[in-house]
Nucleic acid binder design. Structure first.
Lengths: 311, 311
DNA sequence: TATGGGTACAACCGTTGGCTGTGTCCGGGC
DNA sequence: GCCCGGACACAGCCAACGGTTGTACCCATA
């Protein structure tokens, strides 16, 4: 199906005749007739009843019309999503089921009129380059890995400290605990495949290991979160970390346990990053929304790396 | 823009390479390459970065992808709306802003998963023919105009008695009344352009006039509801009837008054009509929803024509 | 360095889709 | 009752689009 054909159908329905629609679309009446005929042939139904005074919609045509309009609206939005000027606010999140996505869902509920596009970049250096080039407007990240301070033109504010939880299978030694302390984790094998050296999340877990003497294994190929959860569920000696707000796609009752960690609670510090000169109006709205909607960070009893501060 | 091109884009994005997408779509790799290149040319942005191992989305591509998927979903629904088998429930209402639309909105809120298509037919004979032919599934109408009983194969149930209100401008003699009796209306000019003889709503107002000795003028061309409201607002000697649940599109504070009518309250009897043998599953859902959601009819102090009964 | 997998470019060609010219149908006016 | 004007459909023509085959190029890997 061709959107020009759909546009022709809508124009003809609005005009009530092919002739006028043809004038609007700057084609001949014959072209409109052909397009409509082709559309009717494709759909297998008659859309117009031709009369001497023009053409009026059949019942099928009436039913099709709102769908056709919607199609054109969606197409327009799709084109706008990649248009250089005045496009939807483009937000980078770490993972589609992570805490940043939750924040964006909240923002969308509060401001449904603001168009959003969500993308996922790999790590902070890519995100910074994209922010500086204008390809994205903002990013949720843990900022300022040691030795790599944020550039001058990038601003950031810490918006969410997300507590880490221990995820275990039902046969794990700690599976029955209602909460565990960081000290208790020493000696247990914590498995986090998919950690890529050099990324800001790798730096976070490096610091966590160094601070509390944990054992985190990043070995083995990363077959995706499904495979990870599968292995965790079946292996008594393995556990993993997971953000408190991460949404698991997992059959209920499979025996996975999410156990809070205390003394202190490691929190992952999400910051919002944006370019100093970005003029997108929705960016200011997002910033004030997050300032109002998110609690303060650095609460007592939590731990985050030294470098995870906002300016 | 061509939907096949969009489909190709989505397939390539999912596959991560053109070759595999080409196999899925049963075209050559070169065709996919051409289509993507054409799409990129149309949009003016690069959607993929070509690598030795395939093609991965750029940021623009990532932003465009969900819109492309939505486009395909909407297109599928659009085609389904005219497909003979298993199409959305097709409902005929008298007017887009009338009471039946309100009932359908309530049904949609209660059952958002049920796809609906709303059409508007002119009068009951057309609607009956459409129901019998299967072109529509159900219709909201006042049924059984005298001398034209419902055919054997059409069933109906009265679902809503909608009280009529008097609509006046601010300078009308009755504008200050909190309610008026039918007897008080005698002698006042009530203007209802657009009433077409032979329709079931014309029959309703004929009966109303005959029963209570009112003066209803249907003269003059019908320039649409905007022009009607305009005239009512500016003309002290004119008033009109309007369903209690009709939504007016009118600037607030323009001085239009909606005045309840009593002793008795004329009600417009909306019935749901459907074909005895219609197998559409959503039809049964709609019927039980309306049975639960709508109050009984024939309340004390109301009036409707004798013929407005359901079987 | 050779190889394999993946993409882009070129040439060819059938089909699509637009335009012009013409036929047909219907309603309104003389 | 006839004619005319307006509106849609059909036929023929042609350019442009889009698909296929063949081939070159690029890059990661062994």
């Amino acid at each position: 199906m061709d959107l020009d054909t759909v546009r022709t159908f809508v124009a003809a329905a609005d005009a009530g005749q092919f002739q006028e629609a043809a004038a609007e679309l700057a084609v001949t009446q014959q072209a409109v007739s052909k397009r409509i005929a082709a559309l009717e042939r494709n759909l297998g139904v008659r859309l117009f009843t031709r009369t001497a005074r023009g053409a009026e919609l059949t019942i099928d045509g009436q039913a099709f019309l709102p769908h056709a309009r919607e199609l054109l609206r969606v197409a327009e939005r799709a084109v706008a999503s990649v248009l250089p000027g005045r496009r939807p606010l483009r937000v980078d999140v770490i993972a589609s089921r992570g805490a940043a996505s939750g924040l964006m869902r909240g923002f969308h509920r509060a401001h449904p009129e603001i168009e959003l596009d969500v993308v996922m970049l790999f790590e902070i250096e890519t995100a910074l380059a994209a922010i500086r080039s204008g390809a994205i407007d903002t990013s949720f990240r843990a900022v300022a890995v040691p030795g790599r301070p944020l550039p001058e033109d990038i601003e950031s504010v810490r918006v969410l400290d997300e507590p880490l939880q221990l995820l275990t299978g039902p046969a794990h030694a700690l599976a029955g605990a209602r909460s565990v302390t960081v000290a208790q984790l020493a000696g247990h094998r914590i498995w986090m495949p998919g950690i890529v050296p050099g990324t800001e999340w790798a730096a976070y877990y490096d610091d966590l290991v160094a601070e509390f003497g944990l054992t985190i294994e990043a070995t083995g190929p990363n077959f995706g979160s499904d495979a990870l959860l599968d292995t965790i569920a079946d292996t008594p000696a393995l556990a993993t970390f997971m953000g408190e707000q991460t949404r698991l796609v997992w059959p209920a009752g499979h025996g996975l346990r999410r156990i809070p960690v205390t003394d202190p609670t490691p929190v992952y510090p999400h910051s919002l990053l944006w370019h100093r000169d970005n003029p997108h109006p929705a960016l200011a709205t997002l910033r004030s929304h997050l300032a109002a909607a998110t609690a303060g960070h650095g609460a007592a009893g939590t731990w985050a790396p030294d470098w995870a501060t906002s300016r």
